[in-house]
Amino acid sequence: MTSIDSERTITVTVNGVPREATVPVRRLLSDALRHDLGLTGTHVGCEHGVCGACTVVVDGAAVRSCLMLAVQVDGAEVRTVEGLAREDHQGGQVLHPVQEAFRECHALQCGFCTPGFLMTIAAGLEGRDNSAELTEEEVDDMVGGNLCRCTGYANIKKAVHHAAAAMKDGA
């Protein structure tokens, strides 16, 4: 028999760590990450899919976390901005090439939109063959769904090229 619930306990692997949470079924994934799991790196802007600030990676694909229910990620792997940098095994962390490129190219100002851009671009670049040249059209398609009110996009697009070059060289 199919169970029809108002609340569920879910198990989800977030940034490599198995986590459990009991949530009302109407809980958005964005809110579950921030409120139930304490991962406030994922930002929430519009809550209807338009701004892209809440973008996270679910089972390898970039998605809007405000357009998924938390119960829908039961059993899935979620990656958030907190999971981009790697441990350097000396007590510190190594930034992901996309984060490094954002710093290098000054691709953020207030930083509100940044987690969404980072996740969108990281998934976009990790999902493509980086030995093929990255076209302007591809870059526009990649970042066109994320709103930034500060930078004017020129430096964000520069950072995408920068990161793609670094990832091609196996950084």
Binding site: T2, S3, I4, D5, S6, R8, P24, V25, R26, L28, D31, E47, L69, V71, Q72
Partner: peptide, 25 residues
């Protein structure tokens, strides 16, 4: 804003999905 409360089912067959859909509107 947030969705108003609702109940949720995620059946694993089409038959079950159709049954819940017709019972519950």
């Amino acid at each position: 804003m947030k969705p108003a409360p609702f109940r949720y089912a995620d059946p694993s067959t089409l038959g079950e999905a159709l049954a819940v859909l017709s019972d519950e509107g």
